[in-house]
Design a protein around this nucleic acid. Structure first.
Lengths: 144, 144
DNA sequence: GCTTGATCCTCCAGCGACTGGAGGAGGCAT
DNA sequence: ATGCCTCCTCCAGTCGCTGGAGGATCAAGC
């Protein structure tokens, strides 16, 4: 047996957790601060020690963030994940709401893309006084 | 003649400017604070008074914001707009950089859209324990 | 002239989701 | 024992606003 510390199976410090999950150290502390991640046990010298469960939870958060969910939604999703007996309608609703958001943003960005393409395409590269980009921005009749 | 105030042709207070441009009053003050909008003259009682030029400048900023330019880019674009003799290459570069950014974001969001669609489509509406949404978030092999 | 309500002023805190730095203590490897 | 790495806390900054407190002033109606 390695050490007589209390049930220290596979505990790692915050840096290892960060490396394992791809979440930066300050971000992990931030998640703890806002109550998204449980307060972990500490060593005698105040170092946070994390188990596999914490890693799973953090990975969950990371995936959700990569998918663009905001932290409040993730809070709800984690809560649901902790209660497998509850109906999954709420999880679905959160995901679909987010999907609708994403679609809306795509539409918006495509409109921007169109505008910007037109602006840059028309610019022949002379002086600012003839610049279509600057002109378009001065134009009151912007089609947005 | 209306008033003997010094050359007060078409000056309006901040609220009128806000109404005319669609930019909120605190935002106008914010733009002034960060040096994007020139410090306007004040009345004896400290009220800011704006002329047509200020309105044109603010409209320019607003259009640029609607097109998604960040304030630093807008600062540069305004600067260029003030110097019609300069070549417009820089303006073009700013617009094209932004366009590339927009395209990148669209691609990213489309990937998200795909992921989210798949997740929600597969969910049959039972319990959380069988929820594809929650499952996908727990899954380590997220395809992003 | 007086009252009422709108507008203006300054200052400051907050949003979301982190990010990074200062300043210091502790741990690990040679 | 040396030296570097990691950890700790606290705090300020990012971006582009937004809104509120608390107070002064204006314009219009009566």
């Amino acid at each position: 047996m390695p050490l007589p510390s209390p049930a220290s199976a596979g505990l790692r410090p915050i840096g290892k957790l960060a490396a394992a999950t791809g979440v930066k150290v300050p971000t992990i502390r931030f998640y703890e601060e806002i109550g998204l991640l449980a307060v972990p046990p500490r060593t005698a010298n105040d170092r946070r020690m994390y188990d596999d469960d914490a890693e799973r939870r953090l990975s969950f958060i990371r995936h959700a963030r990569q998918l663009g969910f905001d932290l409040d939604s993730i809070r709800s999703l984690l809560d649901l994940s902790d209660h497998p007996d509850r109906p999954c309608a709420e999880a679905n609703a959160i995901a679909e709401r987010h999907l609708a958001d994403v679609k809306r943003k795509i539409a918006q960005l495509k409109a921007l893309q169109g505008e910007l393409s037109r602006m840059t395409a028309e610019c022949a590269g002379g002086q600012v006084s003839a610049c279509k980009v600057i002109e378009a921005l001065h134009d009151h009749t912007a089609s947005l």
